[in-house]
């Protein structure tokens, strides 16, 4: 039984066409000309209990729109979504009890009052049992370090502190599902690391199902077992990381340090090298592993100059995604 089911989800936004200039503005006010923007187009996927799913895609892809539908904030134009057997936009409140939500750029905490009081209010809002509350607070204050700033009003918190407090509050009632929309945006490396560890821990120890959107490749690499990629509202990929790398990332990079020479590496292109840079000492060579391997290139080089050192870099997810986005972009340009 999937915990989240999304079937043929489509969300369109109507926007009144704006016209330029003063009279244009007045016309806009009275016109009923609409521009339809399809934010999510016929997307289907399902998530199993206990998964961590990375929901990724370039800016404006429709990630937040999907999350908002799953949370019950938006009603889809067509298609449907079901979370733990509940249709979120029909039974918003019932659904809310099963989920925790963090939107990276805004807080659900009370702005003017100390964190501890916000936590207390949430505790009453969710009617959390004392035992559960204390147990959760013990874990959270330890892992997230909430105690440091628990008496500070939210508006005085740093972004990182606020994010930690938000995470804490969204998990107080031990929800089955946690939605994170860009949870690491704007945070420094240490806090990011801390938050990733926390997310992992929650997933492992409490079995929380997690759906997260992010533009941070390290988040994806370190957290997600599975990736769903959308672009311009269309689902482009759904599967594990390994197959994505295999599909888009048959690339490797080899760095070779040589004694000064003037070898022309153009000859490598015919052998399966896709890109190279060489300044007479340091060569950066990208190649596709199904055409040539590192040994082949090294042999070719050693026949022409003295190689002093070399290193092989596995492609990381960042390059895979970048390549994928680039291909998506080219494909859509070709369609036009």
């Amino acid at each position: 039984m999937s915990i989240i089911k999304v079937e043929n989800l489509t969300k369109q936004f109507k926007r009144t066409k704006r016209k330029k200039g003063f009279f244009g503005a007045i016309k806009t006010l009275f016109s009923n000309e609409y521009e339809i923007k399809t934010a999510v187009h016929d997307v289907s996927f399902s998530v199993e209990k206990g998964e961590i799913v990375g929901y990724i895609g370039p800016n404006g892809a429709g990630k937040s729109t999907t999350i908002k539908t799953l949370v019950g904030i938006l009603v889809p134009t067509s298609g449907n979504a079901e979370v733990k057997g509940i249709i979120p936009y029909q039974s918003r409140i019932e659904n809310a009890r099963n989920i925790g939500v963090v939107f990276g750029q805004r807080t659900q905490l009370w702005w003017d009052i100390p964190v501890v009081d916000s936590i207390n209010l949430m505790r009453h809002m969710y009617k959390i049992q004392d035992a559960l509350f204390e147990e959760n607070m013990k874990i959270f204050s330890q892992v997230l370090g909430i105690d440091e700033f628990i008496n500070t009003p939210v508006r005085q918190l740093s972004l990182g502190q606020r994010m930690r407090a938000d995470l804490c509050v969204s998990l107080l009632h031990s929800p089955d599902i946690l939605y994170l929309d860009e949870p690491t945006i704007g945070l420094d490396v240490v806090v990011k690391e801390n938050i990733r560890n926390f997310i992992k821990k929650i997933n492992k120890e409490m079995g929380t199902t997690i759906v997260l959107t992010t533009h941070d490749m390290d988040d994806i690499e370190m957290l997600c077992h599975r990736l769903i990629v959308i672009d311009k509202g269309h689902l482009m990929y759904d599967g594990d990381m390994g197959s994505l790398k295999a599909k888009y990332g048959s690339n490797e990079r080899l760095t070779i340090i040589t004694e000064k020479s003037d070898v022309d590496l153009k000859g490598l292109l015919a052998l399966g090298v896709s890109e190279f840079k060489y300044n007479g000492i340091k060569a950066d060579i990208q190649y596709e592993t199904d055409k040539i391997n590192a040994m082949g290139i090294l042999e070719w080089m050693m026949q022409r100059c003295r190689v002093k050192d070399f290193s092989i870099h596995q492609v990381n997810i960042e390059e895979v995604i970048r390549k994928m986005y680039r291909e998506l972009d080219e494909r859509s340009k070709m369609m036009k």
Partner: peptide, 14 residues
């Protein structure tokens, strides 16, 4: 405008 309103909508109350 700021999106804070979305945060009211994922809580189990009116």
């Amino acid at each position: 405008h700021s999106g804070e309103f979305d945060c009211l909508m994922h809580k189990p109350m009116s």
